[in-house]
């Protein structure tokens, strides 16, 4: 009886764990956050959430300077980090595509930052950036450049964080591009050799155009990841000094777990969710148009 029922419904039983997982861990939290974004609640078990309508969204979008500033900061962090990472990553991938001694050992070493724990990296970089005894200022001193404040300066803090992000994530772009390079067809290169093209011409007219879809995917994947950066920023500055490294992720954490404005946090995250969703859709369309 039961086995016959199973026999007929096996196509539902097999995907059940996956469906349940998605429902419990993804759909429910998003739906709950969406609902909560119309309430005001301080996590109290005595005072229930109070309905405020779109008030949270209105406050965030029109009268909260920290929200707009952090949104802007999130994008400038993402764009500058990903831009530097792409240029360096493609360059390094081209380098590793050549044959030279000790290439594999170097490649492994080069990938190490990517697998290190972000919070640990943050703590180490905090020491490097320490303005009085840190390694970064010792290097500047050696080069006869006046010392910088790094994380302690409201103007340099975001750039300092970008450097850490670049250090950690350039290998990822390099890795993706390297994979793309190894799957390129050889015929165009043979033709170019016959035609007597210079190495520069080969690079700009053949390699880069052929690599374009790969680079695009790497950039978009990395952008979505960079938008979500939280760990290194929270570990290193927690948004300071004077809110100058407060990205949207840090701001929502502060609103949620240090201000206990749970409703406000939910609306903030909904706005961010829509932005990331937009980015993801861009990725899908871009891959359809230019991808293989």
């Amino acid at each position: 009886m039961f086995s016959r029922w199973l026999e007929r419904n096996i196509k539902y039983v097999f995907p059940l764990p996956a469906v349940l997982f998605v429902l419990l861990m993804m759909v429910f939290p998003i739906a709950y956050t969406f609902r909560l974004s119309f309430y005001e609640w301080s996590m109290s078990s005595l005072v229930p959430p109070a309905w405020v309508g779109v008030e949270n969204y209105k406050t965030l979008l029109f009268s909260d300077p920290r929200f707009m500033a952090s949104l802007w900061r999130t994008f400038s962090f993402t764009i500058s980090a990903v831009a530097v990472e792409t240029v360096l990553g493609v360059g390094i991938a081209l380098l590793f595509n050549q044959d030279f001694k000790g290439k594999n050992a170097l490649k492994t070493l080069f990938l190490l930052p990517m697998i290190a724990t972000p919070v640990a990296i943050g703590l180490v970089w905090m020491l490097i950036y320490e303005p009085n005894i840190g390694f970064a200022n010792k290097v500047l001193q050696f080069l006869h450049i006046p010392p910088l404040l790094w994380l302690a300066s409201p103007h340099q803090v975001l750039a300092s964080l970008v450097v850490v992000d670049v250090w950690q994530w350039t290998p990822m772009i390099a890795l993706v591009v390297l994979a793309g390079l190894s799957s390129l067809p050889t015929e165009p290169y043979e033709a170019a050799m016959v035609d007597g093209a210079s190495r520069w011409q080969v690079l700009t007219k053949i390699t880069l155009p052929l690599l374009q879809p790969t680079i695009l995917v790497a950039v978009l994947l990395r952008s979505i990841d960079a938008l979500k950066t939280f760990d290194i920023i929270y570990a290193m500055t927690a948004g300071g000094p004077d809110f100058n490294s407060e990205t949207i992720n840090i701001y929502s954490f502060v609103q949620g777990f240090s201000y206990f404005h749970l409703g406000m946090t939910s609306s903030l995250l909904m706005i961010f969710f829509v932005i990331v969703l937009g980015m993801s859709m861009l990725l899908v369309t871009a891959r359809k148009r230019w991808g293989a």
Partner: peptide, 16 residues
């Protein structure tokens, strides 16, 4: 003060 007090809580200030 030393450079970087903007980022100092008590552990950092005491360290100086």
């Amino acid at each position: 003060g030393p450079p970087g007090t903007l980022n100092m809580a008590w552990p950092e200030a005491f360290a100086v």
